[in-house]
Design a protein around this nucleic acid. Structure first.
Ligand SMILES: Nc1nc2c(ncn2[C@H]2C[C@H](O)[C@@H](COP(=O)(O)OP(=O)(O)OP(=O)(O)O)O2)c(=O)[nH]1
Ligand SMILES: [Mg+2]
Ligand SMILES: [Mg+2]
Ligand SMILES: [Zn+2]
Length: 590
DNA sequence: GCCGTTTTCGGCCCGACTGTTTTCAGTCG
């Protein structure tokens, strides 16, 4: 784990302890936000502490700065340790239980000396908690359910796993009689690499039809538990343990509802704060004049009884706030609202900007389709060019090519290219970066290719120095154009190489080597944090699928999402260049 | 705890659902 994530965990725990102690709730909010900022930040915290620039980060004040500084210097935080000693670990763990919050947990602890899930279960079963004020049969039954179902978030899942499930649910939802439209919202619409739960928005013509939808939703096949069900929203858990939240609103509130439910939470808070400053108030029903809204009496689950300033589309709401449309992938409270206000939102890369895929495999190594089939799929995808980059000889399991086979393969690619229309093929290879940074082909072999992707595939547990030197050596090779999946990390799996990223970025930018955003799930490597840092450091990126079949070319949407979430513009992406420009880039290095 | 065309104290987003509440607190989105 990195320093940033260590610190993020510390601040998240401090936030929980603040809540448990009944401190001003804004303390918990503040610490939780700092936790998120640190987790999201590519910033070298150690460097920032040395430079004394930690306090410059918006949201980190005097107090948190001192905690960070002590931790960076000594590897410990006395304040954090003192706070931890004041709360038994079992009490903190109880916060993970569905339906249990800091108020209730603190009361169980203080009033009944309950400090673990086991003790709580025993106390529920012997009926001894029923005499607590505000605690009744139903509440205890719900907590019991939560305890048995274990953790609140049964862990986050990779987007690649969740997306098909969400789409199937969406199809079902659209078949429910009064549903006019249904969309994915939440982290899935923002294309976050991991998903806590699925959020779906359904629209109906009239308010009165909404309860029909929530009733149908909780009856969907595969529903394991119903966490809650009201007239306008419902939450279920399906067999796999995945939670699905549904929100239902009348169509004329679609834009406001989608904006609300897309989030992120912190983005919403930021936009709503801006609305406030402009004398307006924003919720899932619409954007309203604040004074008029205050005079009106709003009933739960019903539209406010006044005309909204905007509500039908997200565009209208942003516009009424004086903002350009903010792409869902940017809505993470990473400076996008401020940038929108100042008119300096980036024009992030879009699918239509991509002119080719520069990392694909064929039956020559471990792919499932021939060169021609891959070429045809690329042409159908609207691409101008496609690089065929099969594995090198060390990848014996993947039927990697030796120099002789590679030469024949390249010849076949070029021959086919001569007769194909509407797509240009580049003869390349994905050459292994061996554990010491040497490549799996001689330079003379690489020199014969149009494009070279160099990737680490094994020995992915090296220490930072060794791993960084390994990649630097590959970057310095005059024939290497792209470093493929630079870290080797897998979502929900191995961490990958612990690279000194700033050093990698400097070398990549200086040598004219692109770094890949590998789209294949569960790689997504570089990830969004490093992609953003790379682009800011002047590195060029390549968004590739690493497709092992024609169908996998479609997975480009995942890599594209990483790039978009990283604020990457087309100018930073080599496969947004027209073929001539790309060829010039490839040639320049040699 | 953090922050400042509201400036160094006072405000911090806003609403739905649940349970035990006779007027709202807690939890969650
Ligand atoms: N205004 C506002 N909106 C919220 C709040 N909490 C959640 N939302 C909105 C924005 C979220 O993206 C959306 C869905 O909530 P989730 O808890 O499912 O979060 P999200 O999907 O963003 O992340 P996840 O991957 O599920 O953890 O609901 C809140 O406190 N205030
Ligand atoms: Mg969600
Ligand atoms: Mg949710
Ligand atoms: Zn590959």
């Amino acid at each position: 784990m990195s320093l940033n994530t260590d610190l993020a965990d510390i601040f998240a725990t401090i936030a929980d302890i603040m809540d448990l102690r009944g401190e001003n709730p804004f303390k918990g909010i503040t610490y939780r936000k700092i936790s998120r900022i640190l987790r999201d930040s590519p910033l070298d915290i150690r460097q920032a502490v040395e430079n004394g620039t930690i306090g410059d980060i918006e949201g980190i004040g005097e107090h948190s700065r001192s905690i960070i500084e002590e931790y960076v210097r000594t590897g410990r935080s006395t304040e954090y340790e003192t706070l931890c000693r004041s709360v038994p670990a079992g009490v903190l763990a109880l916060l993970e239980v569905e339906g249990l919050g800091p108020k209730t947990v603190a009361r169980f602890w203080k009033e009944r000396n309950i400090t673990s899930a086991d003790q709580l279960l025993t106390a529920i079963d012997d009926g001894s908690l029923l005499d607590m004020k505000g605690i009744g049969q139903k509440k205890l039954a719900a907590i019991r359910q939560g305890l048995l179902a274990r953790a609140k978030t049964a862990g986050r899942r990779g987007i690649g796993e969740v997306l098909p499930v969400a789409q199937e649910l969406l199809r079902r939802l659209r078949r429910v009689e009064p549903v006019r439209s249904a969309e994915v919202a939440g982290s899935l619409r923002r294309m976050k690499e991991t998903i806590g739960d699925v959020d779906l928005l359904a629209c109906v013509a009239e308010e009165t039809e909404a309860p029909v939808v929530t009733r149908a939703f909780v009856e969907f096949p595969g529903v394991e538990r119903v966490l809650g069900q009201g007239d306008t929203k419902a939450s279920i858990v399906v067999g796999s343990g995945l939670q699905i939240d549904l929100r239902v609103l009348p169509e004329r509130h679609f834009g406001a509802a989608l904006m609300y439910f897309t989030g992120s939470k912190d983005h919403n808070v930021r936009v709503r704060g801006l609305a406030q400053k402009k004398g307006m108030t924003l919720n899932e029903w619409g954007l309203y004049d604040a004074a008029e809204y205050a005079r009106a009496t709003k009933k739960t689950g019903a539209a406010p009884p006044i005309e909204p300033l905007a509500s039908r589309t997200e565009h209208e709401i942003f516009a009424r706030l004086g903002l350009p449309f903010i792409e869902p992938e940017l809505r993470e409270d990473r400076g996008e609202v401020e940038a929108a206000v100042e008119g300096r939102l980036p024009r992030i890369v879009a699918r239509a900007d991509l002119r080719g895929d520069l990392h694909t495999h064929t039956t020559a190594s471990d792919g499932q389709n021939t060169i021609e089939e891959m070429a045809e799929a690329a042409r159908a995808a609207g691409y101008e060019y496609l690089a065929i980059t099969d594995h090198s000889k060390s990848q014996t399991i993947a039927n990697g090519l030796d120099a002789r086979r590679l030469a024949k393969h390249a010849e076949a690619i070029r021959k086919l290219n001569d007769r194909l229309r509407g797509i240009t093929l580049l003869a390349g290879a994905e050459v292994d970066i061996l554990s010491d940074g040497r490549l799996d082909y001689e330079d003379a072999v690489l020199a014969e290719l149009d494009i070279v992707v160099a990737s680490p595939h094994f020995a992915l547990k090296q220490e930072q120095r060794k791993a960084t030197d390994r990649l630097l050596r590959a970057i310095e090779n005059p024939y290497v154009n792209i470093i493929g999946h630079p870290t080797g990390r897998l979502i929900g799996g191995r961490e990958g190489l612990p690279l000194d990223m700033p050093a990698i970025f400097r070398a990549a930018a200086a040598s004219g080597t692109a770094l890949e955003i590998n789209s294949s799930y569960p790689r997504l490597d570089l990830d969004e944090v490093n992609s953003r840092a790379a682009a800011e450091a002047g590195v060029l990126l390549a968004i590739n699928t690493d497709a092992h079949s024609a169908g996998e070319l479609e997975a480009i949407s995942f890599g594209l999402a990483v790039a978009r979430r990283a604020w990457v513009t087309p100018a930073r992406v080599i496969n947004c260049m027209p073929l001539a420009g790309l060829r010039a880039f490839l040639k320049k290095k040699k």
